[in-house]
Each structure stands twice: as C-alpha cells, then as structure tokens.
Design a protein around this nucleic acid. Structure first.
Lengths: 253, 253
DNA sequence: GTAATAGTGTCTCTGAGACATTATGAC
DNA sequence: GTCATAATGTCTCAGAGACACTATTAC
C-alpha cells in the first residue's frame, strides 16, 4: 500500500503549492465633519499586504499563504486570517480557484480564494505578518486601480462581485454590523457594498412586509419596550437584530 | 530567476495532485405508459464511473482526472467532460474544493469539483474512458444511497444543493431543454431538480408578470404567428425560448 | 428655532393566490 | 364522448412606488 502510494504520487508532475488567498473586506466609518450627530461616511475597504520577497517584492497583494498537508484549505485560510489580522473569523467563504498556467512565477501554484467580512472593530490589533513588510486597508475602488501582485486584481474583482450578490441575497450584512443596529445603519451598510442599492420605503419593507417578515426583529429591553438608539440622530431610532431567517429566492417567484 | 523558482518550489512538501471531478447531471425522460400523449416522467440522473484500479477499485465514483501543468483546472474539467461523455460542454461550473487531509489514500490530493448539466440527447455517444471499466447514469436519489469512492457522496450532495439553488435563481433550466419549449416542459424540468417547487399560476407569472417579463419570449413562425407544439398534449401548447435575461434577486426587494 | 434623522399617511396599480372554468384536438 | 394538457376569468388582498407629512431631540 505504501508502495502504491509512492508510485501513484510520483508518476506525474505535481503542483508546486496550493495556497489560500483571502480577500478581507471591512467597512471603515468616518464621522462626517460639521454635523454633530449624523450617519457616518462608510467605505468598503480591502486589506492588502506589501510583499517583501520575490516574486513581486515591494508590490501590494492579498494576504495568503501556502497550505500544509495536515490541514484542509479552509483551515489554512482561517489560520492565515488569524495570522494576518488576529481575527478568529467564522465568516469566511471560499469562492473560487485560480490556476491559469503562469499565474505565479514560482511554478505551478493553484490558489484558492476566500473572502472574509470583518468588522472594523475586530481589526484593532492587526499587524504585519512574517512575509509582509506592511499591511494596510485600501478602499476597494482604489485597490482596483493598483498594480497588485499575481492575478490578485482579478481575484479582487471576482470577490467584489461575489460579495455584492451575497449582500442582497443573504444576511451577511450582519458581519459588518453590531448585534443591535438601526434600520438606517443596515441600509447604509448595504449601500456601501452595493452602490446601486436604492429602496424607497426600506423601513416598511424590512419591518412590515409579510414575505420578508422575520429577517429582522425588534430588540426589547428588560421592561419589554423597544430598545432605541440615538447614536446617529437626534430622534432615537429603534434597534433591530437579525433572526437568522433568510427568505427563499426564486426568479420564478 | 530559474534558481529562485526551484528553491521556492522545493522548500516545502507539495501536493501530490490536483484533479477535477465532475458531477454530470442529466434528466432522463420516460414515456408514461397508458397515455398516448402525455408529459413524460423525468428523473434527475448523475453519471458515475466504475473504478478499475486502486484505490476503491470496483467502486463507483464521479468522473474526473488529474490536472496538467499546462492547463487551468477549468480546462482540465472540460477535457475530462469531453473524454468521459463526448460532450463539448460550455455549461460547466466550478463549485467547491475538497482538501480534507486523508480524503485520498494516494496522498495529498486536492480535488476541484465541477458540475455540468447535459442534455439527455447529447449523451448518446458516451462510452467508458481509460480508467473506468463502466459508465452509467444513476438517479440521484439512488446514487446518494450508494457507497461512492473517496468523499464523492459529499461532493454529490453539495452539487445537488448547488444546482437546486441555481435552478431557481438563474436560467440553467435551459441546459435541460430544447431551444424551443413549452411552459409545461419548463415547469417539469424545474420540478425534477427541485421537488418542492410548486407555483400555482406558473404560466401567468412567467409570461405576463411585469417583473419577470423578459425571462422567456414566445417563438413566432415565419408568418408571425406563435409557434405551437402538440408533442405532449392533444391541445397544442405555445412554444417559448429563453432570452438570456435574468431578473436581479434580493431579499430586501 | 434648526439640523438631521426617524417614522407615518395615503393613494395608485401591479401582481400573487386560489380556484373554477373553458379550450383544444387526437383517440 | 373521453382524456390530458393548455389557457383564461375572476375575485381578494398583499405590497411596491411615490412623496408629502409629522415626530423627536440635541444643539
């Protein structure tokens, strides 16, 4: 049996590595100046590292690293996320593989791309990892203009498209929100990721429309009264939380 | 540079192979007996091959094969599909990677799973390929009960879940249909893949509902009159085709 | 008062759901 | 006439869209 394994494994040219690359998205908030209480400016950012060794030394790239034999690629991505950002993420998702011959000058290297949505607050302790001389958050629009290492621009584009679809069809917005949030915050998060998103009576649809009822629910305080927040406005807004329910989607309705 | 490549590539333990496995779905139709003209029984089937060599010799498995250095994994999957079924498929889709340590007794082998939807008619010339002693189509429900090689049962389960989501959110039903089809056929194809699918006034929704208008369009004959078909019924039914339009989906409407 | 956001009232028109009903045409 | 499927009629009620209006409260 051991013989057979060796035989089979060495018969052909084998890949030179199977890394996981992670597109780590976060939303940065910036207090609008002038206004005292107002909804912040939010921007979708992506975490990039500056490579310090060949190939593409000095260029910016997505964080990632090679997978070991003893872990699955998913575990590898979690490990890299932890190393790169200090985040114990659960919300990572695999979305594509990149294997075009010649994509990596080091050889035949098949990259597995993940995306992670990380709350700005969780990124407080981020630091440069072993093979990066620097780490920074870059607004996605800006990152897409940069000359990233490898095929990382393509990966970023794909990730962005993927996250946009997910933002509207699932409840991943919760990754960017505190546990309790106002409808205004939710709306703003969706718009930050999907700029085209524009729903007129959003509060009504999300809170009282029959078919979507159950996506969010109101948060009550000890006395059974709705919890409110006036963090962003003079008039306090009601707080909601996600229930975990996701309505089924169908183009055939 | 050449030195650096070799250095980098040989520094670590590298994978022993990166295959593509393909879940090939097809719908088989069976004339109902008794009735002369009636909609056929349709069953979702998956193509399996019987392995003739170690490991899992004699067991049934998904078709697939190892990727070469000179091709992307996507190209590899297309090649395997062609070899296995003779189909020049365009409609293949990558959906997941399987890399759990120990999943393949031959070593560290990371499998990339694709799915293909193939029309029953295109499968006419299928034949056993090099590393398979037999090929057959198995109803998915049955295949899920079988002891498949490797982690192929899991892969099949994931593929099935994936195709069900896609069937309702995109227009992949067209892969299973002739160019011109009746609303009844479309309905039946959807139901074959998604047994729970049950829409009451389907014909109205698909043909006259504003928001879905444009998914299908009527087919006209030379004289500008709607084309009809009475293949499945005494009363002729109108024929439609897909336009390629897919309405956007959102849980926030 | 003003600013900035939260939330409601009201009207129209589309369309989903539920069925019953009618249409067609080979046999 | 029968059978099997195709298609329409009709009613109700949910809900999307538009947009003006009111509410709250720190400053």
């Amino acid at each position: 049996m051991e013989n057979e394994q060796v035989y089979s494994a060495k018969k052909y040219r084998t890949p030179d590595g199977a890394p996981a690359d992670i597109v780590i998205f976060t939303i940065l908030s910036q207090q609008k100046q002038g206004a005292k209480k107002s909804l912040p400016m939010r921007t979708l950012n992506v975490l990039l590292i500056q490579r310090k060794s060949w190939p593409f030394a000095g260029q910016w790239a997505l964080p990632g690293g090679f997978c070991n034999e003893t872990e699955s690629i998913h575990e590898c991505a979690l490990r890299e996320l932890k190393e790169e950002t200090g985040v114990d993420g659960e919300g990572i998702e695999y979305f594509n593989v990149y294997s075009k011959p010649g994509r990596d000058p080091r050889g035949w290297i098949i990259s597995h791309a993940f995306l992670a949505l990380v709350n700005e607050r969780q990124l407080a302790y981020r630091q440069a990892a072993d093979d990066a001389s620097d780490v920074k958050l870059v607004p996605v629009e800006e990152a897409l203009q940069m000359e990233l290492a490898f095929d990382h621009r393509i990966i970023l584009q794909d990730a962005l498209q993927h996250i946009r679809g997910k933002m509207l069809s699932t409840v991943i917005a919760e990754q960017f929100l505190p546990e309790h949030f106002t409808i205004g915050e939710l709306y703003q998060v969706i718009q930050t990721v999907v700029p085209d998103f524009n729903e007129k009576n959003f509060i009504r649809k999300i809170t009282s429309t029959q078919s979507r009822k159950g996506i969010v629910e109101e948060v009550l305080d000890n006395g059974g009264k709705p919890k409110m927040s006036n963090k962003y406005s003079q008039r306090a807004a009601q707080l909601y939380r996600f229930t975990g329910y996701v309505p089924p989607l169908s183009i055939f309705s």
